[in-house]
Amino acid sequence: MSALFEYIIRLGDDSLILGHRMSEWCGHGPILEEDIAMTNIALDLVGQATSLLNYAGQVEGNGRDGDKLAFLRYDREYKNTLLVEQPNGDFGTTIMRQFLFDAYRKPLFEKLQNSSDKQLSAIAEKSLKETKYHLKHSSEWVIRLGDGTEESHQRIQEALNTLWRYSSELFYTDEVDATLLSQGIITDIAEIRAEWEVTVKNVFEEATLQIPSNNWKQEGGRKGMHSENMGYILAELQYMQRAYPNMEW
C-alpha cells in the first residue's frame, strides 16, 4: 500500500466520519437557522470525502472508487481520528469537536495547496474555502457559548474537558508522513500544530475557557484502532451496501 494512498484515506475518512456525525443533526438543530448551517457543514464534508476517496481509489489503481472505499471497508481499514467519531452529545460538544478539528484542518489545507501532488493541491484549495468558513462558524460559537450564560459556559467547558484528550491525534505522524514529506507532497506537521495552538489559545481565551491540565491522550484511529462508536457508525453507514450487496442505487 502506497504512502500517498494511506495519507489520502486518512484525510478522506476524517471528512467522511465527521460529515456522518454532522448529518445526524439534520432536523434536530437547536434552531432552524443553525440546523441549516450545520447541514451545510455536513454537505461540505461529504463533498470533501467524495473527492478525497475517489482520488485515493485512483491512486490505489485497483478499481475501487469513492463509494467502494466509503461503504465497503472493514472497521480497521478506516483511518479517521478518534475525535471525529465521538458522539454529537449536546450542541456544545458538537461545536467543540468541530472547532478542534477546523483549527487543524485550516492550516493543513493551506499547506497542502502547495503540494507537489497536483490533484491533492486542487482538492485542498477547494476544501480550504469551506474550512475557513467552518472555523469562523465554530470559533464564534465556542466564544458565544463560553462567554454566554453560566449554563452554556459550564456545558462548553465540559465538552472541552471531554474532547481535549483526542486532540493530539490530529498531529499523529508515522512513516507515511515521513515518506510524503521527503517527496515534497506534504509539509512538516509541526507548523500546522503551531498554528493550531495559537488559534485554540486565542479562541479559548476569548471564550473564557480553561484548557484541561490533564494531559491524558487517546490515539489509535490513524492506525485503524477505533473507539466503540465506530462499529455503530459503520452499521448505519454501510447498512444498504451490506444488506443488499452488489446493487446500483
Binding site: H28, G29, P30, I31, E34, D90, F91, G92, I143, R144, L145, D147, G148, T149, E151, S152, R155
Partner: peptide, 13 residues
C-alpha cells in the same frame, strides 16, 4: 427544548 440553552447563551453573549 434541547436548544433553548443555546438560544439563551447567544442572546446573553
Amino acid at each position: 427544548e434541547d436548544g433553548m440553552w443555546v438560544v439563551e447563551a447567544a442572546n446573553a453573549y
